[in-house]
Amino acid sequence: MESLFGSRQAQVRPLLLGLTLASCVLLGIEKAGVGWLLPLRSVLATAVAPVQYVADSPYRVARYLVEFFSTRDRLMRRNTALERELLLMKADAARTDAISAENDRLRELFNSRARLPDDVLIAELIEVIPDATRREIVVDKGSVHGVAVGQAVIDSTGVFGQVVETTPITSRVLLVTDPSHAIPVQVIRSKVFAIASGGGRGPHLLDDPSVTTDIVIGDDLVSSGLGRRFPRDYPVGVVTEVVRDPTLPYAQVMWEPSAALSRARHVLVVLGERRDEEQPETGPGGVAETEA
């Protein structure tokens, strides 16, 4: 028995050493950030997608049951409320259309290119990355749906984050509050540019604005579009605290995201500017042209 035990041990040790070495090589490649492992990751992540759906299923089932057992009366009331909301939204949208048309005419006067509306895709959350120091989610749309790394993700109230990894059927989204995330923003009121960094669990800060920068509590931050990753003019957050210590070279400006990061189940992936100018019938968006 002892000799059997000994022989097994002798086999395992070089194996363990080899595996440690393999892991170190993989970690080194990851650290170098060259992206050699992306194809492998994509294959493995596709394989674990069913696990993500199963882990999310309690919430799916619960929502289904709530829908199934809600009374006719409640559904009717909800329907009425939604219809009313839709009507208000449509009125709002009509007004916005007029304004954006006017805006485009003005831009034409300045010889700038008219801004096109963005094509978006609705995606549903299936996993929250289980690490309290990180802010990442996985959604149920992937490269076959047109999602690509670098695309912005928004919800109805603001910028959510950006796509950092895709598989054919899922994609991983880095939220604006992740410590490794930063987004170029503009203060609506004073037109000041800044960079809004995520703070993870801690406060989210603007990157080193000078003490004289014109920022006050309650200022709205929108994406500035600088860096060309995020579409411009989407709400990003609100300034919640400004500390101006004369002994420090920079002001400390804290912000809170406007998107419902921890509550939203559905998000919109911004696929890019809608390509209406080239053959509307075959365009990927498939949305009829209505603008003059």
Partner: peptide, 16 residues
């Protein structure tokens, strides 16, 4: 490896 992609960690870490 499967655990690594599931929690979006670096490949090979959970493995070792």
């Amino acid at each position: 490896l499967f655990f690594d992609v599931l929690v979006a960690g670096p490949l090979g870490l959970t493995g070792i």
